[in-house]
Nucleic acid binder design. Structure first.
Length: 556
RNA sequence: UGGGGUGUCGCCAAGCGGUAAGGCACUGGUCUCUGACACCAGCAUUACCUAGGUUCGAAUCCUAGCACCCCAGCCA
């Protein structure tokens, strides 16, 4: 709705410049996930960047699986990734690719390198290779196998492909420079032996290319013009270019790097996310507390909110940590416009309206969205006994509290003014019920005598209300960041609270993923899996801002 | 101690020699049948990591420092 004129960033300028200078006629980007886990909010940044740039400049963006390591990759991940990208709102059209579909071509190029004397088969073990690599300050030294003849290398490499050698016994390495200050250029491994079936191409191969040998060439094959990746690949760029320059590839894409997203109070590495799933700390990859796209979806985040977030945080090259509040504000902004309102009481306190006719029931008209009359209204039943939010009553009201208190009058949203006359307690002294009187002349919520009331609270008819499970989520971690082996020590043990709330009857029919604003409380989404019409289950996406609770976040 | 990067408001982020955009957060206030939303105002006043220098003029150019991040997987 509101226009946040998209500010420029170095990638936009880059593309614009390349188009203008004629370096390329059409921009072609790609989102290249490895199918070894579910996509998370950090990937969303990359997706929005790559698809967004293509969209903005009239180009195309490919979805390409960077599936060069079969031991970590699974079909389940491939499917979830495709679903998440689509859900986020992007379309790769015909451009769905797999690096594994290029294996034959890559193999051919590996032989080209061997023939040119630029690659060799090394018999050193992984540990030996590490030793020979040197250190950050000392140059590496040549492997004793570095000077094998082209014939030997070719024969050996073919036998590697033929399955004659066990895993780890040999690798193919590029012959570049063992004393380069850039470790990536100290004869990087190009192929390793892995007798493992591949989720996409099956059991055809027992040698697999490394990321470095697959990525740039795949970009070249697809005619990618701008290969955008995260900063940690910056040191790989010289290798990326070296391979493209030494191989007969159809074109030379360029690599650009940006800073990955860091979000506070959650974890972003796939390794940690996998650990949470495996250890049962969360219900799965799509647990509403997870920063995965499936998790955010279940939590109630909308694709539009996530896209807005990605646009707002910008793109740069400096390490950055984004406040959770930015993400939260994005959903609020989106849902405030779109989500119909509803009445629900999370922590019920019974109220009996003494002067209301015992058997009377009224259907009161409540707008579905005060800001959007076109969204219509609904009828909500009202009776003598209702539930209000426990927090909306204080026996000894603090200064500035203008909800219900002994002797005070408040408005029940779209219903009547009521005044609290009496507090009812149980044997333990706990307040279990309030006795109130209502003013029949305030039907609908306004007084004919012009009397004003400061507070308006929500309510649900006790007789008609529907009890339902509602899950109140809070941040995953108790600290903004968490590193080291004991990072789990920061896990928030109260990241979810399951309660039995009372909802206005109409909410019983909610379909999975229906979203509502429970007035004065927050945005809630019917759980994608557990909610069914007739037996709703809601997840709290985010609370409403609350300037009374003063800055206080997530009461949980 | 090698190489590659980054340093502009609490958190992001524009800016690319001409006198500090915007968003989030925060603080006041207006409005209000959601203490929500909306709206108004304030929020880096020689200040853009520091110190020098060039210039009529610098966050933007130069020099020297400092801090932080990444790289020694047959992971990506």
């Amino acid at each position: 709705m509101s226009e946040n004129p998209t500010t420029s960033n170095f990638l936009r300028s880059m593309v614009a410049g390349d188009l203008q200078s004629g370096r390329c006629q059409k921009v072609v980007t790609r989102f290249p996930p490895e199918p070894n886990g579910y996509l998370h909010i950090g990937h969303a940044k990359s997706i929005c960047l790559n698809f967004g740039l293509a969209q903005e400049f009239g180009g195309t963006c490919h979805l390409r699986f960077d599936d060069t390591n079969p031991v970590k990759e699974e079909m389940e991940y491939i499917e979830s990734i495709k679903a998440s990208v689509r859900w986020l709102g992007f379309d790769w059209g015909e451009n769905l690719y797999y690096a594994s579909d290029y294996f034959e071509q890559l193999y051919t190029w590996a032989e080209v390198l061997i023939v040119a004397g630029k690659a060799y088969v090394d018999d050193l073990s992984a540990e030996e290779i590490r030793g020979y690599r040197g250190s950050l300050t000392e140059p590496g030294k040549a492997s004793p196998w570095r000077e094998r003849s082209v014939e030997d290398n070719l024969a050996l490499f073919r036998r590697m492909r033929g399955g004659e050698f066990p895993d780890g016994s040999k690798v193919l390495r590029a012959k570049i420079d063992m004393s380069s200050p850039n470790l990536n250029l100290r004869d990087p491994v190009l192929y390793r032996i892995l007798h493992a079936p591949h989720p996409h191409v099956g059991a055809r191969w027992c040698i697999y290319p490394m990321y470095d040998f697959a990525h740039g060439q795949s970009d070249a094959i697809e005619g990618i013009t701008h290969s955008i990746c995260t900063l940690e690949f910056e040191d790989h760029r010289p290798l990326y270019n070296w391979l493209l320059e030494n191989l007969p590839v159809p074109g030379h894409p360029r690599q650009y790097e940006f800073a990955r997203l860091n979000l506070g109070y959650t974890v972003m590495s796939k390794r940690k996310l996998l650990q949470l799933v495996k250890d049962g700390d969360v219900g799965g990859w799509d647990d509403p507390r997870m920063p995965t796209l499936d998790g955010l979806r279940r939590r109630g985040y909308t694709p539009a909110a996530i896209r807005l977030f990605c646009e707002r945080i910008g793109v740069g090259r400096s390490d950055s940590w984004i406040d959770l509040s930015v993400l939260e504000d994005c959903v609020r902004e989106d849902l405030n416009e779109k989500a119909p309102r509803a009445l629900a009481v999370l922590k019920p306190l019974k109220v009996v309206i003494d002067n209301y006719p015992p058997e009377q029931v009224e259907e009161l008209e409540v707008p579905n969205h005060p800001g959007h009359p076109e969204m219509g209204s609904r009828k909500v039943p009202f009776g003598r006994e209702i539930y209000i939010e426990r927090d909306d009553f204080e026996e000894f009201p603090a200064k500035g509290f203008f909800r219900l208190a002994p002797g005070r009058e408040v408005r029940l949203r779209c219903a009547y003014f009521i005044r609290c006359e009496e507090i009812v307690r149980d044997a333990g002294g706990e307040i279990v019920e309030l006795r109130c009187n209502y003013d029949p002349a305030t039907r609908g919520g306004s007084a004919t005598d012009g009397r004003k009331v400061k507070g308006t609270i929500h309510w649900v008819s006790a007789r008609h209300g529907v009890t339902a499970e509602v899950r109140l989520y809070d941040r995953l971690l108790t600290t903004a960041s968490s590193t080291g082996d004991d990072w789990k020590a920061a896990l928030n043990t109260r990241s979810v609270e399951v309660i039995a709330a009372v909802l206005e009857p109409g909410l019983a029919g909610a379909a999975p993923e229906d979203r509502f604003q429970f007035e004065r409380l927050g945005y809630f989404c019917a759980d994608r899996h557990d909610s069914h019409p007739g037996a709703p289950v809601f997840n709290r996406t985010v609370t409403l801002r609350d300037s009374w609770g003063k800055g206080g976040q997530s009461p949980a």
